[in-house]
């Protein structure tokens, strides 16, 4: 994913010890997601998304809302990896973000072992295909329908079918580079052998032999 926001690096030493670093870009301010019930309602709707992400491992929603929920999901997994399940603040965090309580088991028993040695982010985002014909024409561009999902958020290394196709092999792949070099070496050896044989033949023809006399 392209980094839209510069990650926040100005963190005091004490806070940096307390909070595990995230692998995603964090925006400087949270998005102003409107909700009728205010801030708590917004957090509840985000927690519903985080719960669905842990349960189904793949969620569809609008891009902005998902990118907001993604940060909280990353934070939850990072804290769970950092502190484990015998840490009261972590369990409180898991209790808040996971509305279905059986998923707390999944978080600590499935997701923590899966992502313990990970060096990249725990989640990944894709842009969903637009269903045409789209209904709105705005600014000369076709916009997606408001009721359709615009993005997909998923946990990495999930057991589901991959949404992206397998990468197409290119000549820069390491085995293609090695095969190309082997092919070159083989053809070079073959050519050298042919040249050597031709040279030998020429020498035998030019050779006067023991019978002939040299002037």
């Amino acid at each position: 994913m392209k980094l839209l926001y510069r990650p926040r690096t100005v963190v005091t030493a004490e806070v940096a010890k307390l909070i595990p670093a995230l692998r995603t870009a964090i925006r400087p301010k949270p998005l102003k997601l409107s909700n009728e019930e205010g801030t708590l309602g917004k957090l509840n709707s985000l927690s519903r998304l985080v719960t669905a992400l842990v349960r189904d491992e793949r969620v569809e929603h609008t891009y902005s809302t998902l990118s907001e929920a993604r940060d909280y999901a990353e934070r939850l997994i990072a804290v769970a990896i950092e502190h484990g399940d015998c840490h009261q603040p972590t369990m409180e965090l898991a209790d808040f973000w996971l509305k279905e309580k059986q998923l707390v088991h999944k978080l600590f028993k499935v997701l923590v072992p899966r992502f313990r040695d990970s060096t990249v982010s725990y989640t990944k985002m894709y842009k969903a295909p637009i269903a045409y014909p789209a209904s709105k024409y705005e600014g000369g561009n076709l916009q997606a329908r408001a009721d359709l999902p615009q993005a997909i958020l998923e946990l990495r290394n999930n057991p589901l079918l991959p949404v992206l196709p397998r990468p197409t092999p290119t000549r820069n792949w390491i085995h293609n580079v090695l095969l190309e070099e082997a092919r070159k070496e083989y053809s070079q050896e073959k050519r050298m052998g042919e040249e050597f044989a031709a040279l030998e033949r020429m020498q035998t023809m030019e050779d006067p032999g023991p019978d002939k006399e040299i002037d």
């Binding site: 793949r58 894709y126 842009k127 969903a128 295909p129 637009i130 269903a131 997909i152 589901l160 079918l161 991959p162 949404v163 992206l164 196709p165 397998r166 197409t168």
Partner: peptide
């Protein structure tokens, strides 16, 4: 699309492949 050969917008998933994946999932 390198998988099915259908058209898709750059930066977005292929609609044909994603519909299949969604159905199976």
């Amino acid at each position: 699309c390198t998988n099915c050969g259908g058209p898709h917008e750059p930066g977005r998933l292929c609609p044909i492949c994603y519909a299949l994946v969604k159905d199976t999932t």
